[in-house]
């Protein structure tokens, strides 16, 4: 089983997905992300999907669900690095990912989350 790093930086956690995940490993990853959000009290979650060559309905739904659950735990999510071919394919497939924050890369994602978190505290 491939272990996926969950990196904590300040009030955020960053999950760089490194390779194609099968359904079972993807579900385990979702569980450990939520557990980490809870244990460190993270305010922001970045899932970097730049290495994923495809996102199908299963993975797409898992990502959207993870973001929704994180939000219920007081943690905002940014999905970073999604390839343009992947975005086009998801739209054609009929999966709506518009209710999830996306950024070009991890750095932009951190900035975006900082703005959202700051806005919420004002």
């Amino acid at each position: 089983m491939s272990d996926i790093a969950i990196i904590k930086i300040g009030n955020k956690i960053i999950v760089p997905i490194q390779n194609e995940l099968n359904d079972i490993i993807a579900e385990k990853l979702q569980a450990s992300i939520l557990k980490t959000i809870e244990s460190v009290g993270a305010k922001g979650l970045i899932i970097d999907v730049s290495t994923l060559s495809i996102i199908d309905s299963f993975m797409g739904r898992l990502l959207v669900d993870t973001a929704k659950m994180a939000q219920l735990m007081g943690c905002e999510t940014a999905l970073t690095g999604m390839r343009k071919e992947v975005v086009l394919t998801l739209v054609q497939l009929g999966l709506i990912i518009s209710d999830i924050n996306t950024s070009l890369n991890i750095e932009d994602g951190i900035e975006l989350l900082d703005r959202i978190i700051r806005g919420r505290n004002d």
Binding site: D23, S53, D56, S57, F58, R83, E85, V86, T89, L93
Partner: peptide
């Protein structure tokens, strides 16, 4: 093309699953 690969491989993933 990369787009065609992405579309078909996504379909393959759905049908294989």
């Amino acid at each position: 093309s990369l787009l065609a690969q992405t579309r078909i491989v996504t379909a393959v993933s759905e049908l294989a699953r």
